[in-house]
């Protein structure tokens, strides 16, 4: 998530670096969504509902806190 460290637009900068950064951020977010979708079904299949939900829940909270902390000025 290097993109989060340098989020601000460069007034003089080109659009290609921004596109790459945007794509990288989107892929990380998409992977989270896919893990949650697959994870909730997988956790039911293996029978570990509580563990699955706890892991997923702490995953979200952890990601949110890290993202805010890294992006904070």
């Amino acid at each position: 998530m290097a993109t989060m460290k340098t989020p601000l637009l460069d007034a003089q900068g080109g659009s290609e670096p921004r596109r790459v950064a945007n794509r990288r951020t989107a892929l990380v977010l998409l992977s989270i969504a896919l893990v949650f979708f697959g994870g909730i079904i997988a956790s039911q299949l293996v029978g570990g509902t509580t563990i699955g939900i706890v892991v997923v829940g702490f995953g979200i909270i952890g990601f949110l806190l890290v993202a805010i902390e890294r992006g904070r000025k």
Binding site: P7, L8, D10, R18, T25, G71
Partner: peptide, 8 residues
């Protein structure tokens, strides 16, 4: 995250 104006 990525498109805020400079200074924002």
């Amino acid at each position: 995250l990525n498109m805020r104006a400079p200074g924002m």
